[in-house]
Amino acid sequence: MAPKFHMFSNGPRPVAPFSHAVEDDGWVILTGQMPTEPTAPDAPLPEGIEAQTRRVMDNLLLILGELGLGAEHIVQCRCFLTEFERDYALFNETYKSYFASDRLPARTTVGVTALAVGALVEIDLIARRPQEGES
């Protein structure tokens, strides 16, 4: 089966040439999302790491929702922070609020020098569709 490349008209406007998600054999890979507002992509970014993390997570969940999936299907996240030492603790508090405490995805968090659109945070992820007989 060939991979499926997904773009959603109500999803965040891409800041580069990519698909919102690519799916193959039950695996769903979401492109890293920025803290842009899907309904107003040219609006200023939210202020601070907490607001930007919420917007990024909401954008990821919007795309997962278009695919009939939710946070419970996420198996791995990669997180990128431009102000790692300053923002790491508050980022963690905000991030973990999106998951059940017993279903935290595997995760890598990396400090970087810059992100597209001047963002403080970007997150990409891998999700897995439930297989037949799974809940």
Rank of each mutant, 00 (worst) to 15 (best):
P3W: 12
H6L: 14
H6N: 11
F8D: 10
P12Y: 01
R13G: 00
P14I: 08
P14M: 05
E23Q: 05
E23D: 03
D25P: 00
G26I: 01
G26F: 09
W27Y: 12
I29E: 01
M34A: 10
T36K: 14
T36F: 03
T39C: 07
P41Y: 05
D42T: 06
G48I: 12
I49C: 01
E50C: 05
Q52D: 09
Q52V: 10
T53I: 07
R55P: 00
R55F: 08
M57L: 04
M57Q: 10
L60P: 01
E66T: 00
E66C: 14
L67S: 09
L69Q: 07
L69H: 01
G70C: 06
R78F: 13
C79T: 07
L81S: 03
L81T: 11
E83I: 00
D87I: 06
A89E: 14
L90Q: 14
F91S: 01
N92E: 13
N92L: 14
E93C: 03
T94F: 08
K96Y: 08
S97G: 15
R103H: 15
V110W: 04
V112H: 11
V117H: 08
V117K: 11
G118M: 04
V121A: 04
I123N: 02
D124N: 15
L125T: 02
A127F: 04
E132P: 01
G133C: 02
G133F: 00
S135H: 09
S135V: 06
